[in-house]
Simulated scan of single mutants.
Amino acid sequence: MEKKKRDLLKTYIPLVDFIAGIVGPFCEVVLHDVSNVESSIVAIKNNHISGRQVGGPLTDLGLKLLKEKAYVEKDYLLNYPGKTKDGKVLRSSTFFIKDEDGDIAGMLCVNMDLSAAYAAKRFIEDFIMNINGEPQDQSTYKEDRKEVPENLTLSLEELMRSIIENTVAEVNVPPERMSPEEKMGVVHKLSEKGVFLLKGAIAEVARHLKTSENTIYRYLSRKNSDL
């Protein structure tokens, strides 16, 4: 009977390398022979996680499961917490290997090392916190963009119209209701923005402000006077 169980366990040895190869270096796979709990490990892969070796003993949970005969009603246990001697946090699962009579022969255990996952989680959380925790930097960036807007227009006419319309809109008063001082203020702002370096700007500004070209010239001549 014991020989049959040992032969059964041998068929699972390739699965140790197979599972570890699929999941990767953060996955330790262990095959236990429960007939010798003091030296139950018959195969292990990625043992850098726990530091255990072939010939090592069964775990405390493994002993408890054997004692309770948990394998009678269950075929496996999934995703229970574990911990290594040096403090690594694990997510573990165990498959009960049974013979044709339902008697347990061994356990195939998969231990996922979550250390890197938790480190990545902390990094992402800290990274997001740093972004959300610096509103002053975002505010400064927004203010810089507000002070130096850029409008990518397709023609000179669109460029001129865009600047004039945006500047007029800053007053929040329709041109026909603007006072002479308000219109003069618009002209001075447009001058600061270089609009009058563009050919035809005087006529275009006059049209938007619903006034004459001579008035625009007059406003420009008073550029340095108090409004």
Rank of each mutant, 00 (worst) to 15 (best):
T84P: 00
L159E: 12
G56S: 10
K5D: 10
Y217I: 02
R91A: 02
V72D: 12
H188P: 03
R222D: 10
N36R: 15
E73G: 00
V205K: 08
P135C: 09
N130A: 14
K69R: 12
R52V: 04
I216S: 00
S179A: 14
S50I: 07
I41V: 15
I104L: 07
A201L: 06
Y219V: 02
Y12Q: 05
K193I: 10
S50V: 07
R218A: 13
S225K: 15
G82H: 00
P14M: 03
E170A: 10
E73W: 06
A203Y: 02
S155Q: 06
T140V: 13
N172T: 10
V54C: 11
G194K: 11
F96W: 02
G200K: 11
K146Q: 15
E213I: 11
G185C: 06
L227S: 07
R122K: 15
I49P: 02
K69D: 01
K10P: 01
K88W: 08
L209D: 05
R177G: 00
L58W: 05
I124C: 04
V54L: 06
E2D: 12
L197R: 13
S92D: 12
N214H: 14
T94E: 02
P25M: 07
M129P: 00
H188C: 01
V16G: 01
R207K: 15
V148W: 14
Y141W: 13
N132T: 13
D86W: 01
V187D: 02
A206S: 06
K10G: 00
I124S: 08
A117I: 15
D60L: 06
K189G: 06
G55I: 12
Y118C: 03
A206N: 05
V29D: 00
I124E: 06
A169I: 01
A203T: 12
K10Q: 09
V23A: 14
K183E: 01
R91Y: 03
A43T: 04
N130S: 15
M1C: 03
F18Q: 08
S179T: 15
L58K: 01
E134Q: 15
K5I: 01
S92E: 09
K88E: 03
V205G: 03
M129I: 11
F196G: 03
I19W: 08
F196N: 04
E38Q: 12
I164Y: 04
V23N: 05
A70C: 04
H32E: 05
R161F: 13
E213C: 03
E176C: 10
K210S: 04
E176I: 11
L31Y: 09
E170D: 13
T59I: 08
L198Q: 09
R145F: 11
S35Y: 13
L209S: 03
I131K: 02
M107C: 04
V110G: 06
V187C: 03
A105S: 13
K67E: 15
K4D: 12
P81W: 00
V110D: 06
M1K: 10
K193Q: 14
Y217K: 11
E125F: 04
H188M: 11
E100A: 10
R52Y: 12
K5C: 01
P180C: 00
G51T: 04
G200N: 09
D33F: 09
N132K: 14
Q53L: 10
I124H: 07
D126P: 03
